[in-house]
């Protein structure tokens, strides 16, 4: 029988327990089980497209499926910056409620217009760490050389008095070791896989009042989607649903694993209080939110819609 082969690309290490890789792999397995003449071939670790090429390739149908940080496409759809915006998502339960909100409807509309469709939602949490002092309130970042994950975080941290150095997450370890960096912010997954516990003295875990959450959905090219028959679409939807649930349970477990690994290595672990969180939000409102509202059509409405989610 004629098998339709879909190519799925992502930037994360393959077969080494990275949850995002497992999520895509799981979808491939489920779709194969469904036996609807559909097969997903996974290309991990940027082995087909580089991280930043994936969106462009997807919407042209050069690539069929991808799991990517949606903010990577914010150069083409500035609205996507809202999915990597400080403080819009507070914790994993909040992320779940956000998925069914008007805010996400607005984002998914832009994704659809761009030429793609969401198969599975995924919100990844992240942490802050420093080799100088624990990062809690905004004053604690003053004067630190900081690597932040995402432009909106760079704006907020700079407004709080940090000095920003941008580099890929793979360079954080060396940069901290040699003293180019004092502090870094990235996903919990990267904190573990890049062994940053060897270089920092204090970790700020996401906890109840996390600042950093990033939307990293599994997407399918709309062109490709329209070319599939109904049974195949159903199989993909079902697989996406399962992968989404799998990720949601794993995401919190990763945070826990990070805390354990860092504590085992003698790193102090703290979390932000509600006051810290609110103080950061005030700074974000004057920096990242304001820039976003000024530069993006519909920007203020997006922020309001996100903040409206309880």
């Amino acid at each position: 029988s004629a098998q339709t082969v879909l190519r799925a690309s992502h930037q994360f290490p393959g077969g080494q327990g990275d949850v995002r890789d497992e999520m895509v792999q799981m979808m491939a397995d489920k779709v194969a089980e469904a036996d609807v003449g559909l097969e997903i071939e996974v290309y991990p670790g940027q082995s087909l497209f580089k991280a930043k090429e994936q969106w462009g390739a997807l919407v042209r149908g050069r690539l069929d499926i991808t799991a990517l940080p949606l903010d990577y496409a914010s150069g083409r759809h500035p609205e996507f910056s809202a999915t990597l915006m400080p403080g819009l998502v507070r914790n994993h339960e909040h992320a779940q409620r956000l998925n069914d909100s008007e805010f996400m409807d607005m984002i998914k509309e832009v994704i659809q217009e761009g030429g793609a469709r969401v198969l599975a939602d995924a919100w990844l949490s992240g942490a802050f760490a420093s080799s100088q002092n624990c990062i809690t309130s905004p004053e604690t970042v003053e004067g630190q050389n900081f690597r932040a994950a995402g432009p909106a975080f760079e704006q907020m941290l700079e407004a709080a008095g940090a000095s920003i150095a941008s580099m890929p997450s793979s360079e954080i370890y060396t940069a901290m070791q040699t003293g180019v960096l004092d502090a870094a912010n990235t996903s919990s997954m990267s904190f573990i896989s890049y062994r940053l516990y060897e270089q920092v003295d204090c970790l700020t875990e996401p906890g109840e009042h996390a600042l950093w959450f990033m939307y990293e959905p599994v997407l399918i090219s709309e062109q490709v989607w329209q070319g599939l028959d109904e049974a195949q679409q159903q199989a993909l939807k079902a697989a996406g649903q399962e992968a989404e649930e799998f990720f949601a349970t794993e995401a919190a477990a990763i945070d826990q694993q990070m805390v354990e690994v860092f504590e085992e290595n003698g790193v102090e672990v703290v979390s932000m209080s509600e006051e810290d969180y609110n103080a950061w939000l005030e700074i974000a409102k004057q920096s990242s939110y304001k820039n976003f509202a000024d530069n993006v059509e519909n920007g203020q409405a997006l922020i309001d819609a996100a903040l409206a989610v309880e």
Binding site: K50, R62, M167
Partner: peptide, 20 residues
Amino acid sequence: RGVSELTYFGETFFDRIAEF
């Protein structure tokens, strides 16, 4: 993979060398 690989070749070529 068809002619779209030619049309969007510039993107691949540029994005791969424009790196710090």
